[in-house]
Computed example of a mutant assay.
Amino acid sequence: MTENISNEDLRCIGCGSEIQTDDKNALGYTPSSALEKAKDTGEIYCQRCFRLRHYNEISPVSLTDDDFLALLNQIREANALIVYLVDIFDFNGSLIPGLHRFVGDNPVMLVGNKADLLPKSLKNSKLKDWIRQRSNEAGIRPIDVELVSAKTNESVDSLLENIDKYRKNRDVYVVGVTNVGKSTLINQIIRQNTGIKELITTSRFPGTTLDKISIDLEDGHKLIDTPGIIHQEQMAHYLNGKDLKIVEPQKQIKPKVYQLNPEQTLFFGGVARFDYVNGDKKHGFTVYVENDLFIHRTKLINADNFYEKHFGEMLTPPSEDSIKEFPELVRYEFKTDQKSDLVIEGLGWITVPSGVVVAGWAPKGVSVLLRRAMI
């Protein structure tokens, strides 16, 4: 696959927004002087992307969820292969509600990103089966399931071969929710074929790509990176960049097993909490979260007071400069009838045994759910 960035109009190659020099507060703004300099190199970035790339500063996005969906609805009329990227570590938070509404009859290839974060003991074949089953439950019938790590370039070559196999002289649309690594994957594809590194803006912040970004394929068709659909239920929307570094896994997860008696609690910094509410005996609970996230065990009867006393100090993140805006924790209780994962979207999960009552606490607006155990 050979690609060149499409130059049909003057657009930011970081986020896809149309370049303009009039309104500092609107998408695509770049100063006239910067634009003239950029024209010499052919690499034009809006001011928002420039500041994000060089200073890790994020500006508010003026596009609404409806704007994003309107852009994606164009796919329904296209004749294309849909490459649907999900974050394996945040699988449930990666699912797009009503995906079928805007892909139409186009085939879907499901790609699980961040495979490097899971323990090597988990075989790819088992993980693919698990992903396919969970996808089927969500009404998605992929023609294939692939596993990659866009960050480390793991299995990207294999993915490109399979994209060529399934696209059959059609365009390719890459879709997904925010923060699953779409732009990182597209950058790997560009780097492999052109040698250009990090052309598209990437960040831990949700909503970096704001419009479609087209890459020419060798047969005249295009690979198109679409805006990420914003899920307000993701943990990333409630943390600043500094806190996200502590919550989002950066390397392979090392599972931690906690032997808990009934009525014991685990705190995950100040962002989440897990209660073993009721059961017949002591059980082992396996925790899959960022390795450096602080976890504290205490008695359930003392948990509320402990949180109130130590939130933002011992229990961090959130850090001191963001605790005022951090939502209250909301409780969700479950009774298990099989080995299950209690998932706190964007944070990770706790694998729990059958026949117990447990509760998960997350910031108001963040989803907590129970699913069939992945591992």
Score class of each variant (00 low, 15 high):
residue 1 M to F: 12
residue 3 E to N: 09
residue 13 I to N: 02
residue 14 G to A: 12
residue 19 I to N: 04
residue 19 I to F: 05
residue 26 A to R: 13
residue 28 G to W: 04
residue 29 Y to G: 00
residue 32 S to T: 08
residue 33 S to I: 13
residue 33 S to E: 15
residue 34 A to L: 13
residue 34 A to M: 11
residue 35 L to Q: 04
residue 38 A to Y: 09
residue 39 K to R: 15
residue 41 T to N: 08
residue 43 E to H: 10
residue 46 C to P: 06
residue 47 Q to R: 12
residue 60 P to T: 06
residue 66 D to T: 09
residue 66 D to W: 03
residue 68 F to H: 07
residue 71 L to M: 10
residue 77 E to H: 10
residue 78 A to R: 14
residue 78 A to M: 13
residue 80 A to K: 00
residue 84 Y to M: 05
residue 95 L to E: 02
residue 97 P to Y: 10
residue 99 L to C: 07
residue 99 L to F: 06
residue 100 H to A: 11
residue 105 D to A: 13
residue 107 P to I: 07
residue 111 V to S: 01
residue 114 K to C: 06
residue 118 L to R: 03
residue 119 P to Q: 11
residue 119 P to Y: 10
residue 123 K to H: 12
residue 127 L to N: 06
residue 129 D to A: 09
residue 133 Q to T: 13
residue 134 R to H: 12
residue 141 R to A: 09
residue 146 E to W: 01
residue 153 N to K: 15
residue 157 D to C: 06
residue 158 S to E: 14
residue 161 E to W: 05
residue 162 N to V: 06
residue 167 R to N: 08
residue 167 R to M: 09
residue 168 K to T: 13
residue 170 R to K: 11
residue 174 V to A: 03
residue 178 T to Q: 13
residue 182 K to G: 00
residue 183 S to H: 03
residue 184 T to A: 14
residue 187 N to M: 05
residue 190 I to M: 07
residue 191 R to F: 13
residue 192 Q to K: 15
residue 194 T to A: 08
residue 205 F to G: 01
residue 209 T to I: 09
residue 210 L to R: 13
residue 216 D to T: 11
residue 222 K to V: 02
residue 222 K to D: 09
residue 225 D to P: 04
residue 233 E to K: 11
residue 237 H to G: 00
residue 238 Y to E: 05
residue 242 K to W: 10
residue 250 Q to E: 14
residue 258 Y to M: 08
residue 264 Q to V: 07
residue 267 F to Q: 03
residue 268 F to K: 02
residue 270 G to S: 10
residue 274 F to P: 00
residue 276 Y to L: 07
residue 280 D to R: 11
residue 283 H to E: 15
residue 293 L to P: 00
residue 295 I to Y: 03
residue 297 R to I: 05
residue 298 T to P: 02
residue 299 K to F: 12
residue 304 D to W: 04
residue 304 D to H: 10
residue 304 D to P: 00
residue 305 N to M: 10
residue 310 H to K: 14
residue 313 E to W: 06
residue 320 E to H: 14
residue 321 D to G: 04
residue 324 K to A: 12
residue 327 P to F: 02
residue 328 E to R: 15
residue 329 L to G: 00
residue 329 L to P: 00
residue 330 V to Y: 02
residue 333 E to L: 08
residue 336 T to V: 05
residue 339 K to E: 12
residue 342 L to S: 00
residue 342 L to R: 02
residue 344 I to R: 02
residue 352 V to H: 02
residue 358 V to P: 01
residue 361 W to F: 15
residue 366 V to S: 07
residue 366 V to G: 05
residue 370 L to F: 02
